[in-house]
């Protein structure tokens, strides 16, 4: 699904990301952990072609992300609040997205009913702009927007941040569903090791821009990760 070749990103001469060869296969649920400044968000931004790589390429379905846009058709993503158009109401935002992605009115209705529990009556029909929602509810809008198109590739940066406990559990259920779907590839980053081990089949540890561990999740993984970060 995703191939990374000799990818680096430098700021002011300092390498903040340096990944030689790395592949994420179709259907995998991939988790990325690392301390602040390890390069998680930078990596995601490079995959989404939001920043220009200093060298190397990212391929999605064998096409370089900075050359073609066909990957955008199958990708759903939410990195941070800047993805939201905050002066729209959630409904207006979803309507816009459904239009951009070529979804029908019926699809949109289906989406609303599918996500009714996830939204928990706090998002739709409130006549509030996204900017007036709480941080957690903004996060919900962003995550739902990423899931809306039923993407083959889902990329979420710290999706659990700021969510209330119920929503965290709901999101975990959604991600677990995706994990068992062989057609969906998921990339998630998190600071919460427990969350990642719960929802990801494969976990990589990023440190100072390099991938230093690449583990298939087993029941020992959580302890292994905790030991690593305990230093």
């Amino acid at each position: 699904m995703i191939q990374v070749n000799n990818l680096t990103k430098q700021y002011a001469g300092v390498k903040v990301l340096d990944i030689e060869n790395f592949t994420i296969n179709k259907g995998e649920s991939f988790g990325l952990v690392g301390n602040n400044g390890a390069g998680k968000t930078t990596f995601f931004r490079l995959i989404l072609d939001l920043i220009r790589a200093s060298s190397g390429t990212v391929l999605i379905n064998y096409e370089a992300v900075n050359k073609s846009i066909s990957w955008k058709m199958i990708t759903g993503s939410y990195l941070d609040q800047r993805f939201l158009i905050d002066y729209l109401t959630p409904e207006e935002y979803f309507e816009f997205l459904s239009n951009v992605h070529g979804l029908s009115k019926g699809d949109l209705e289906k989406f609303y009913s599918d996500f009714a529990t996830f939204f928990n009556d706090e998002i739709l029909g409130k006549k509030k702009y996204i900017r007036d929602l709480s941080k957690g509810n903004q996060q919900k809008v962003g995550i739902a927007a990423a899931l809306m198109t039923k993407p083959e590739l889902l990329i979420l940066d710290e999706p659990f941040n700021g969510l209330d406990p119920s929503t965290q559990i709901r999101l975990k259920n959604i991600l677990n569903e995706k994990k068992n779907d062989p057609n969906v590839t998921v990339l998630v980053s998190s600071h919460d090791l427990k969350h990642v081990t719960d929802v990801c089949g494969r976990i990589a540890v990023l440190d100072k821009g390099r991938i230093i561990h690449d583990i298939t999740t087993s029941k020992d993984t959580l302890v292994e990760l905790e030991n690593y970060f305990a230093v």
Partner: peptide, 12 residues
């Protein structure tokens, strides 16, 4: 505000 559109399937 381009950041809200860059990740969508919209031609740059």
């Amino acid at each position: 505000n381009i950041e809200s559109y860059l990740h969508l399937p919209i031609k740059k």
